[in-house]
Design a protein around this nucleic acid. Structure first.
Length: 290
DNA sequence: GATAAACTCCGGTTGC
DNA sequence: TGCAACCGGAGTTTA
């Protein structure tokens, strides 16, 4: 499942391939169309499928950037700018190919949901096995309110102070630390994998209440999150489950994970424990983490 | 009104 | 071999 480092890898791979190119034609899948006719917004949000395809035709992709776990495609048509917001959900993947047939893995080829044919030939393709991802065409980010409520990028100078301030709010102070750090309105881009790793690195129990952690420890935890995110970006992300980069390739961070998905603590050899926190499976060492 | 918990989307994977 | 249970970002709905 793609988290911030994986999305960063996708964006870095897409940039040289796609920036500056113009979309000739867009084709959405029959599943998207059928779901829409049933009243559901499958992958494509806030737009009718026909309107989405029409709107993106002749758009030039000026710039691609990552924000939290989102990909922003900055678009331009007839001097007016727009944004295509993409979230990969659990199983979304982008491919840049000369023909859709080039997608090697059957399960990705089978679940193609958006095909962007470019004016210079070639295709930008969005595939999504479980359809948890989203494509949202907007005139401006404010047209989707949650995007304006995101915490700053964890690498921003102000992000640590932002985290401290948020953690003191009544809404968060009595919650489990893991639930808080995974909230995109508190810290951007920290999903289950990296929250698990950072809490283990800091020997903090994932269920510990926020108000039972000192400011100093909170700042240390924040730094641990930033460190593990940076390390993972350098390693090309974690290849777990259905994440692939745009070449269908794999990162290596999964080999460096110390607690996520582990049965035994690598530090002390104790069997790890599991519990559900904020609706998510959480792994920790009952001996090391307090 | 603010907050929280429940619910929704889905198919590959796992376990019986 | 078949089949039900399970999992999870982020948004929406219900309590």
């Amino acid at each position: 499942m793609p988290e911030l480092p994986e999305v960063e890898g996708v964006v870095q791979a897409l940039k040289p391939e796609i920036e500056g190119r113009t979309i000739k034609q867009v084709q959405l899948s029959e599943i998207i169309r059928f779901s829409f006719s049933e009243g559901k917004q499958c992958i494509v949000k806030q737009s009718e499928p026909d309107a989405f395809e029409m709107a993106l035709t002749q758009m030039t992709i000026q710039k691609i950037e990552r924000r939290a776990k989102y990909i922003f495609f900055h678009l331009l048509k007839e001097d007016v700018s727009y944004i295509l917001v993409s979230h990969l959900g659990m199983t979304g993947a982008w491919f840049v190919v000369n023909s859709p047939e080039e997608i090697g893995e059957a399960k990705f080829k089978k679940h193609i949901h958006a095909t962007f044919q470019m004016t210079d030939g070639g295709y930008l393709i969005y595939s999504d096995i479980r359809r948890f991802g989203e494509l949202r065409f907007l005139a401006q980010l404010a047209d989707h309110a949650p995007l304006t409520k995101m915490a700053p990028e964890p690498f921003d100078e102000a992000a640590s102070d932002f985290f401290i301030a948020k953690s003191l709010l009544p809404k968060y102070e009595k919650k489990a630390v893991k639930e808080v750090i995974m909230d995109g309105q508190v810290i951007s881009g920290c999903g289950n994998i990296y929250a698990t790793e950072a809490l283990f690195a800091q020997k903090i129990h994932p269920a510990r209440k926020m108000n039972r952690i000192s400011e100093k420890r909170k700042r240390q935890l924040f730094e641990a999150i930033v460190a593990v995110l940076r390390q993972s970006i350098e390693a090309g992300g974690s290849t777990i489950s259905d994440y692939r980069n745009i070449n269908g390739g794999a990162g290596s961070m999964q080999n460096r994970l110390k607690m996520y998905g582990k049965k035994i603590c690598p530090e002390c050899g104790t069997d790890t424990s599991q519990m559900t926190i904020g609706g998510r499976t959480s792994v920790f060492c009952p001996n090391c983490q307090h």
